[in-house]
Protein backbone atom coordinates (compact mmCIF):
# COMPACT_ATOMS: atom_id res chain seq x y z
CA UNK A 1 0.00 0.00 0.00
CA UNK A 2 2.81 2.40 0.92
CA UNK A 3 4.68 1.76 -2.30
CA UNK A 4 1.59 2.70 -4.23
CA UNK A 5 1.22 5.95 -2.34
CA UNK A 6 4.79 6.93 -3.04
CA UNK A 7 3.94 7.81 -6.60
CA UNK A 8 2.01 10.84 -5.40
CA UNK A 9 3.72 14.22 -5.26
CA UNK A 10 1.35 16.04 -2.94
CA UNK A 11 1.54 19.74 -3.63
CA UNK A 12 -1.24 21.04 -1.45
CA UNK A 13 -3.98 20.19 -3.94
CA UNK A 14 -5.88 16.93 -4.21
CA UNK A 15 -7.26 17.58 -7.68
CA UNK A 16 -6.13 19.99 -10.34
CA UNK A 17 -6.93 20.42 -13.99
CA UNK A 18 -4.76 22.38 -16.35
CA UNK A 19 -6.35 23.96 -19.39
CA UNK A 20 -8.67 21.01 -19.85
CA UNK A 21 -10.35 20.73 -23.24
CA UNK A 22 -12.89 18.25 -24.53
CA UNK A 23 -13.94 18.49 -28.16
CA UNK A 24 -16.46 16.36 -29.99
CA UNK A 25 -16.87 15.87 -33.70
CA UNK A 26 -13.44 17.21 -34.68
CA UNK A 27 -13.70 20.32 -32.57
CA UNK A 28 -17.06 21.59 -33.79
CA UNK A 29 -18.53 20.97 -30.33
CA UNK A 30 -16.46 22.24 -27.42
CA UNK A 31 -17.78 20.72 -24.21
CA UNK A 32 -14.78 22.01 -22.28
CA UNK A 33 -12.71 24.83 -23.67
CA UNK A 34 -9.79 25.33 -21.33
CA UNK A 35 -10.79 24.71 -17.72
CA UNK A 36 -8.31 24.97 -14.86
CA UNK A 37 -9.36 24.24 -11.30
CA UNK A 38 -7.54 23.27 -8.15
CA UNK A 39 -9.13 21.70 -5.12
CA UNK A 40 -7.55 21.44 -1.69
CA UNK A 41 -8.09 18.44 0.60
CA UNK A 42 -11.26 18.86 2.63
CA UNK A 43 -12.74 21.44 0.30
CA UNK A 44 -16.34 21.21 -0.88
CA UNK A 45 -16.68 22.60 -4.38
CA UNK A 46 -20.04 22.94 -6.06
CA UNK A 47 -20.21 23.36 -9.82
CA UNK A 48 -23.30 25.08 -11.23
CA UNK A 49 -24.32 26.24 -14.65
CA UNK A 50 -26.95 25.92 -17.36
CA UNK A 51 -27.34 22.58 -19.13
CA UNK A 52 -24.72 22.03 -21.80
CA UNK A 53 -22.24 24.22 -19.96
CA UNK A 54 -19.76 21.37 -19.59
CA UNK A 55 -20.07 20.92 -15.82
CA UNK A 56 -20.78 17.19 -15.99
CA UNK A 57 -18.07 16.72 -18.60
CA UNK A 58 -15.62 18.45 -16.25
CA UNK A 59 -16.59 16.24 -13.32
CA UNK A 60 -16.42 13.07 -15.42
CA UNK A 61 -13.00 14.10 -16.73
CA UNK A 62 -11.61 14.12 -13.21
CA UNK A 63 -11.65 10.32 -13.02
CA UNK A 64 -11.19 9.95 -16.76
CA UNK A 65 -14.63 8.56 -17.51
CA UNK A 66 -14.45 11.31 -20.08
CA UNK A 67 -11.11 11.43 -21.87
CA UNK A 68 -9.97 15.00 -22.36
CA UNK A 69 -8.87 16.08 -25.80
CA UNK A 70 -6.18 18.34 -24.35
CA UNK A 71 -4.89 19.41 -20.97
CA UNK A 72 -4.03 17.58 -17.78
CA UNK A 73 -5.84 16.13 -14.81
CA UNK A 74 -3.70 15.90 -11.68
CA UNK A 75 -4.63 13.75 -8.72
CA UNK A 76 -2.38 14.47 -5.73
CA UNK A 77 0.18 15.96 -8.07
CA UNK A 78 0.27 13.07 -10.55
CA UNK A 79 -0.90 13.56 -14.11
CA UNK A 80 -3.48 10.79 -14.38
CA UNK A 81 -4.54 11.81 -17.89
CA UNK A 82 -1.12 10.91 -19.30
CA UNK A 83 -0.64 7.89 -21.53
CA UNK A 84 -0.11 4.49 -19.90
CA UNK A 85 -1.23 5.58 -16.44
CA UNK A 86 -3.00 2.79 -14.57
CA UNK A 87 -6.14 4.81 -14.05
CA UNK A 88 -7.85 1.97 -12.17
CA UNK A 89 -5.58 2.44 -9.14
CA UNK A 90 -6.37 6.15 -8.97
CA UNK A 91 -10.09 5.60 -9.45
CA UNK A 92 -10.13 3.43 -6.33
CA UNK A 93 -9.34 6.60 -4.38
CA UNK A 94 -11.99 8.69 -6.14
CA UNK A 95 -15.57 7.82 -5.34
CA UNK A 96 -18.25 8.72 -7.82
CA UNK A 97 -22.01 9.08 -7.51
CA UNK A 98 -24.17 9.22 -10.61
CA UNK A 99 -27.46 10.85 -11.46
CA UNK A 100 -29.07 7.48 -12.13
CA UNK A 101 -27.51 5.67 -9.14
CA UNK A 102 -26.13 2.81 -11.28
CA UNK A 103 -26.47 0.21 -8.57
CA UNK A 104 -25.85 -3.35 -9.76
CA UNK A 105 -29.34 -4.82 -10.15
CA UNK A 106 -28.19 -8.45 -9.93
CA UNK A 107 -26.59 -7.98 -6.52
CA UNK A 108 -28.00 -7.25 -3.09
CA UNK A 109 -27.26 -3.96 -1.35
CA UNK A 110 -24.57 -5.61 0.74
CA UNK A 111 -23.03 -7.26 -2.33
CA UNK A 112 -23.13 -3.95 -4.17
CA UNK A 113 -21.11 -2.43 -1.37
CA UNK A 114 -18.62 -5.23 -0.75
CA UNK A 115 -17.82 -6.28 -4.33
CA UNK A 116 -15.10 -3.70 -4.97
CA UNK A 117 -13.47 -3.80 -1.50
CA UNK A 118 -13.23 -7.59 -1.66
CA UNK A 119 -11.94 -7.80 -5.22
CA UNK A 120 -9.78 -4.67 -5.35
CA UNK A 121 -8.69 -3.90 -1.79
CA UNK A 122 -8.38 -7.64 -1.06
CA UNK A 123 -10.44 -7.32 2.10
CA UNK A 124 -11.98 -10.45 3.55
CA UNK A 125 -15.71 -10.83 3.19
CA UNK A 126 -16.14 -10.26 6.95
CA UNK A 127 -14.07 -7.07 6.98
CA UNK A 128 -15.87 -5.68 3.96
CA UNK A 129 -19.30 -6.51 5.35
CA UNK A 130 -18.47 -5.01 8.73
CA UNK A 131 -17.49 -1.75 7.08
CA UNK A 132 -20.56 -1.85 4.84
CA UNK A 133 -22.94 -2.39 7.75
CA UNK A 134 -21.35 0.50 9.64
CA UNK A 135 -21.94 2.77 6.69
CA UNK A 136 -25.47 1.46 6.18
CA UNK A 137 -26.24 2.33 9.79
CA UNK A 138 -25.03 5.86 9.18
CA UNK A 139 -27.55 6.30 6.39
CA UNK A 140 -30.26 4.41 8.29
CA UNK A 141 -30.53 1.60 5.77
CA UNK A 142 -28.97 -1.30 7.67
CA UNK A 143 -32.28 -3.17 7.55
CA UNK A 144 -32.15 -3.22 3.74
CA UNK A 145 -28.76 -4.94 3.46
CA UNK A 146 -30.22 -8.04 1.83
CA UNK A 147 -32.68 -6.24 -0.44
CA UNK A 148 -32.13 -5.81 -4.17
CA UNK A 149 -31.86 -2.33 -5.68
CA UNK A 150 -35.21 -2.72 -7.46
CA UNK A 151 -36.90 -2.92 -4.04
CA UNK A 152 -35.67 0.52 -2.95
CA UNK A 153 -36.94 4.05 -3.54
CA UNK A 154 -34.85 6.50 -5.54
CA UNK A 155 -33.63 8.29 -2.43
CA UNK A 156 -32.63 5.01 -0.83
CA UNK A 157 -30.83 3.95 -3.99
CA UNK A 158 -28.82 7.14 -4.07
CA UNK A 159 -27.88 6.84 -0.39
CA UNK A 160 -26.69 3.30 -1.14
CA UNK A 161 -24.75 4.56 -4.15
CA UNK A 162 -22.98 7.07 -1.88
CA UNK A 163 -22.04 4.51 0.75
CA UNK A 164 -21.02 2.03 -1.94
CA UNK A 165 -18.45 4.57 -3.09
CA UNK A 166 -17.43 5.23 0.53
CA UNK A 167 -16.71 1.53 1.06
CA UNK A 168 -13.59 2.04 -1.04
CA UNK A 169 -12.42 4.69 1.47
CA UNK A 170 -11.93 7.32 -1.23
CA UNK A 171 -9.96 10.53 -0.74
CA UNK A 172 -12.35 12.56 -2.84
CA UNK A 173 -16.00 12.16 -3.81
CA UNK A 174 -17.42 13.24 -7.16
CA UNK A 175 -21.17 13.84 -7.37
CA UNK A 176 -22.74 14.12 -10.81
CA UNK A 177 -26.19 15.67 -10.29
CA UNK A 178 -26.98 13.26 -7.46
CA UNK A 179 -30.50 14.55 -6.84
CA UNK A 180 -31.64 15.35 -10.38
CA UNK A 181 -33.40 12.03 -10.95
CA UNK A 182 -35.21 12.07 -7.61
CA UNK A 183 -38.75 12.96 -6.70
CA UNK A 184 -38.69 16.31 -4.87
CA UNK A 185 -39.64 14.81 -1.51
CA UNK A 186 -36.68 12.41 -1.65
CA UNK A 187 -34.03 15.03 -2.35
CA UNK A 188 -33.64 16.01 1.30
CA UNK A 189 -32.55 12.60 2.56
CA UNK A 190 -29.75 12.43 -0.01
CA UNK A 191 -28.57 15.98 0.65
CA UNK A 192 -28.47 15.22 4.39
CA UNK A 193 -26.08 12.36 3.75
CA UNK A 194 -23.92 14.62 1.64
CA UNK A 195 -23.94 17.37 4.28
CA UNK A 196 -22.77 14.92 6.93
CA UNK A 197 -20.05 13.74 4.64
CA UNK A 198 -18.89 17.32 4.13
CA UNK A 199 -18.89 17.88 7.90
CA UNK A 200 -16.65 14.85 8.34
CA UNK A 201 -14.10 16.60 6.15
CA UNK A 202 -14.50 14.68 2.90
CA UNK A 203 -13.21 16.46 -0.19
CA UNK A 204 -16.20 16.81 -2.47
CA UNK A 205 -16.88 18.06 -5.96
CA UNK A 206 -20.54 18.27 -6.78
CA UNK A 207 -22.44 19.19 -9.91
CA UNK A 208 -25.91 20.13 -8.78
CA UNK A 209 -28.94 22.32 -9.24
CA UNK A 210 -29.59 22.44 -5.50
CA UNK A 211 -28.63 26.03 -4.73
CA UNK A 212 -29.65 25.60 -1.09
CA UNK A 213 -27.05 22.86 -0.74
CA UNK A 214 -24.44 25.03 -2.45
CA UNK A 215 -25.12 27.98 -0.12
CA UNK A 216 -25.06 25.89 3.00
CA UNK A 217 -22.23 23.45 2.40
CA UNK A 218 -19.92 24.69 -0.33
CA UNK A 219 -16.58 26.31 0.42
CA UNK A 220 -16.46 27.44 -3.17
CA UNK A 221 -18.90 27.67 -6.04
CA UNK A 222 -17.85 27.47 -9.69
CA UNK A 223 -20.17 28.81 -12.35
CA UNK A 224 -19.64 27.38 -15.84
CA UNK A 225 -21.08 28.30 -19.20
CA UNK A 226 -20.13 27.24 -22.73
CA UNK A 227 -17.29 25.04 -21.56
CA UNK A 228 -15.44 27.63 -19.51
CA UNK A 229 -15.45 28.85 -15.92
CA UNK A 230 -17.23 32.18 -15.96
CA UNK A 231 -17.03 33.02 -12.28
CA UNK A 232 -15.98 31.35 -9.06
CA UNK A 233 -15.99 32.32 -5.44
CA UNK A 234 -17.50 31.69 -2.04
CA UNK A 235 -21.24 31.02 -1.94
CA UNK A 236 -21.69 34.54 -0.58
CA UNK A 237 -19.85 36.09 -3.52
CA UNK A 238 -21.64 33.99 -6.09
CA UNK A 239 -25.18 34.18 -4.78
CA UNK A 240 -25.37 37.63 -3.18
CA UNK A 241 -23.05 39.66 -5.36
CA UNK A 242 -22.63 37.97 -8.74
CA UNK A 243 -20.52 40.05 -11.10
CA UNK A 244 -20.83 38.37 -14.47
CA UNK A 245 -24.06 39.07 -16.37
CA UNK A 246 -24.31 35.40 -17.44
CA UNK A 247 -24.30 34.36 -13.80
CA UNK A 248 -26.78 37.08 -12.83
CA UNK A 249 -29.10 35.90 -15.58
CA UNK A 250 -28.68 32.26 -14.57
CA UNK A 251 -29.43 32.95 -10.92
CA UNK A 252 -32.48 34.99 -11.83
CA UNK A 253 -33.87 32.21 -13.96
CA UNK A 254 -33.59 29.55 -11.26
CA UNK A 255 -34.34 31.35 -8.03
Amino acid sequence: MNDENNIYKDDGFIIETKDLKKYYKDGTIKALDGVSISVKPGEVVVIIGPSGSGKSTLLRSLNLLEIPTEGEVLFRGVDISAKHVNINLHRQKMGMVFQHFNLFPHKTILQNMTLAPIKLLKKTKEEAEKKAIELLQKVALADRADAYPSQLSGGQKQRIAIVRALCMEPEVMLFDEPTSALDPELVGEVLDVMKNLAKEGMTMLCVTHEMGFAKEVADRVIFMADGVIVEEGTPGEIFTSPKNPRLQQFLQSIL
Binding site: L65, N88, F98, N102, F104, A116, L120, A165
Partner: peptide, 12 residues
Protein backbone atom coordinates in the same frame (compact mmCIF):
# COMPACT_ATOMS: atom_id res chain seq x y z
CA UNK B 1 -24.04 3.45 -16.40
CA UNK B 2 -23.25 -0.09 -15.25
CA UNK B 3 -19.87 0.07 -17.00
CA UNK B 4 -19.22 3.51 -15.58
CA UNK B 5 -20.16 2.48 -12.05
CA UNK B 6 -17.79 -0.49 -12.29
CA UNK B 7 -14.97 1.56 -13.75
CA UNK B 8 -15.44 4.39 -11.26
CA UNK B 9 -14.97 1.94 -8.38
CA UNK B 10 -11.60 1.04 -9.86
CA UNK B 11 -12.39 -2.17 -11.73
CA UNK B 12 -10.55 -2.54 -15.01
Amino acid sequence: GQFEAGRSLGFN
